[in-house]
Design a protein around this nucleic acid. Sequence first.
DNA 1: ACCTGAACACCGTTCAAGT
DNA 2: ACCTGAACACCGTTCAAGT
Lengths: 193, 193
Amino acid sequence: MASKTYHHGALRQALIDETKAILAERGHDQFSLNEVARRLGVSSAAPYRHFTNREELLTAVATEGYDLLYRALQPAAGGTGDPRERLLRMGGAYVRFAHDHRELFMTMFHDRHGSTPLGGESFDLLIAAVAAAQQAKVLPGNASPELMARSVWAALHGLAELVLRRPGKRFGFDAPPEELAVTTLTTLLQLEP
Amino acid sequence: MASKTYHHGALRQALIDETKAILAERGHDQFSLNEVARRLGVSSAAPYRHFTNREELLTAVATEGYDLLYRALQPAAGGTGDPRERLLRMGGAYVRFAHDHRELFMTMFHDRHGSTPLGGESFDLLIAAVAAAQQAKVLPGNASPELMARSVWAALHGLAELVLRRPGKRFGFDAPPEELAVTTLTTLLQLEP
DNA sequence: ACCTGAACACCGTTCAAGT
DNA sequence: ACCTGAACACCGTTCAAGT
């Protein structure tokens, strides 16, 4: 299939893409560097021309994951309309992303890789949405937007993590992501409908 | 050191204990079944008389972890006194546990093992504390105790997870666990001092 | 500059054999 | 019943050598 010179300088990106494909199939802890190389038709030593080790490849994948998360949150955050709906849409998008990209999400937040952005740009979207909600008196203004955004992020992130654990019925985490996000945020923040 | 018959039927528990010791030293993804056996002076096949595979040993460790978490929450949950303080103490204890038992906590919530209790008994403690807070009008009564407890758990769990990622300064997750729990809960739930 | 081939120590797991 | 010894395929990583 692939000739010997197929990856003319593009092996680095091919490694990242193939890793994402494997993550979508198998679990992120089943991932093997040798398998990626095998599937791309290169030797098991080839990846080391582009990444110093297995961990650095996963860091690159996680970084693309943070970018993907940002682009999933953007449409939800960009809408005008009332600030309450905007905040709930963002929450739904966050939990939906975790649900739809299980293994990528776990790679982003569970794997031990060097310093990752940890969703810095996504966090800015949340701060803006929270600030707007505070100005519209949908959220209380006694906490700074940064602090409120951090707290909301914790709630959404914990929700996403617990959903991914697929717990038993008794905890009720088996509802659709958007519904869970709305229920959790309205309960905690006492948002009136 | 250890004679050949040292583990007279107690190898199972010794494997669990040694795994916990390794977790405290190294990371939970650095853990190797062979190393546990080596440190206990048994062959690498010996563990398979007590666990069908590596995953099942980690499940046993996680189960002990859930028990430890329960015992860490109990004193915080048991206190009489006002319901607001009780809820904040429980939150602090949860995040403190994650902080003090990093690798065990990750084993409990990140590793892919068979169905674990997921802190069912701990969840009951939280439901009781939430119900008491609702009756004292510290928390709103428009949501059921179960639903409110689930939401509070999500917030605390997300907080714990994000603390464990050791993010940069900008997110502010580098404060003491108890302080973070109090700040997050009071911000979200609008608890008055 | 980028990749191969062969090698290293290590891993999880199996299985016949020992007591 | 419980453990050993040896073996298997596989893994991450290194390095001299090829183009």
